[in-house]
Amino acid sequence: MIVIHVLTLAQEIGVHRNTIRNWVKTGRISAKPGPGKGLQFTPDDFARLCRDFNLAPEQLKTMARTLPGGDVPPLATPASPLAPRGQDRPGKMVGAVMVVGGGIAGIQAALDLADSGYYVYLVEKSPGIGGKMSQLDKTYPTNDCAM
């Protein structure tokens, strides 16, 4: 367990200490209050905290106390959380992107990526792409045909 003083964390994130307490209460930060004005984090929760608030884990660790029950784990670079871990291609980044939604935004993102050297999975729930724009008649301000 890692213990960080609530004030330290408030300063690091740049909010009021009560905000931190509220976040703990509402579950936005998962931690256990105590001892004293400290907050207890499991190593996993600590890693998530650093990632969510863009904090430097090494620096934060210097301000933390460690209770029996676990040490601060080294953080994996979170650049591609969905890259397959272990098995088939260990540690290798995947040059593919999934675009969820085949409307005009999804199509444009998919085209740009495919044109710049990435494989794209364009995922659309209906049988055809085009989204809401395909239902429009004309577009403003040029009155061009939306189709």
């Binding site: 290798k92 040059g95 005009i104 935004a105 495919a114 710049s116």
Partner: peptide, 24 residues
Amino acid sequence: SVTEASAAATEAAKALLPARGTLA
């Protein structure tokens, strides 16, 4: 929407830079 789509493509491309061209 189109502008942001391209912007998102930039972010994804930046994140996956070392793997560019490996699967396309």
